[in-house]
């Protein structure tokens, strides 16, 4: 359906914006390494099911793209364009996010099986993975416009999945409670950012926190 397609496209675009921003400016200033590491974890724990579950060629290619691009971005950030200044303000304690997601995945899952717990873990972790990045924005008080486009596209992906879930619930009777709940949590975390993005960036102002 259209929401799912738009969501996936937005997800894809967000990664391309980020890669393009890093490659062109040859800098990772303002980008949280911790958030990027969390995304590697999210993609690895959710998408490694492609080794034992086949959905479609589209699904497989997308999974491979997200796993490889997220690892490549972390590689660029650590080895190629290392930025100690940015690292110094990237101080969000992600061990709590990882630990909390792990505990929640043990409590909430569809089956108490390794693959299902990993799937649930990835949903919880994804819902909070942007926090180090938002925290960094808050500390610096402003961001490059391209960085805000990246964060917007990434947030739009999960937000667009919400009407997709409603659509699938009506048309197929399919309900994924875990994905829906964590998707809503994620969207709430983004809501403040969306608001500022809409009021400043889209109207041609610099991204500055009030």
């Amino acid at each position: 359906n259209i929401f799912r397609a738009a969501g996936d496209l937005s997800h894809l675009i967000s990664i391309l914006i980020l890669l393009n921003t890093i490659q062109k400016s040859r800098s990772i200033a303002g980008i949280s390494l911790k958030t990027q590491i969390l995304y590697v974890l999210v993609f690895l724990t959710r998408y490694l099911d492609l080794t034992y579950r086949y959905v479609s060629i589209y699904n497989t290619l997308m999974k491979l793209f997200f796993i490889s691009s997220s690892i490549y971005i972390v590689y660029l950030m650590i080895y190629k364009f290392k930025n100690t200044e940015t690292e110094q303000i990237d101080t969000f304690p992600i061990e709590y996010l990882i630990g909390g997601s792990f505990i929640l995945s043990l409590i909430f899952n569809y089956k108490f099986q390794f693959g299902e717990i990993l799937w649930s873990f990835s949903l919880w972790l994804e819902s909070v993975a942007i926090l180090p990045q938002l925290f960094m924005l808050q500390r610096t008080g402003e961001a490059r416009t391209l960085t805000t486009h990246y964060i917007f596209a990434l947030g739009a992906y999960r937000t667009l999945y919400i009407p997709n879930w409603i659509f699938r619930w009506i048309s197929e009777g399919r309900v994924d409670y875990l994905a829906i709940f964590t998707g809503i949590v994620q969207t709430i975390i983004y809501s403040d950012f969306f608001y500022i993005y809409y009021h400043r960036v889209l109207k041609g102002f610099k991204f500055e926190l009030p």
Binding site: R4, D8, H11, Y47, D49, R53, V55, S56, N59, M62, K63, F66, Y110, K111, E116, W119, Y161, N164, W169, G173, R174, V175, D176, Y177, A179
Partner: peptide, 10 residues
């Protein structure tokens, strides 16, 4: 309603 165990989304 059926529970979504097939995980066909990204």
């Amino acid at each position: 309603t059926k529970q979504a165990l097939e995980h066909d989304e990204l």
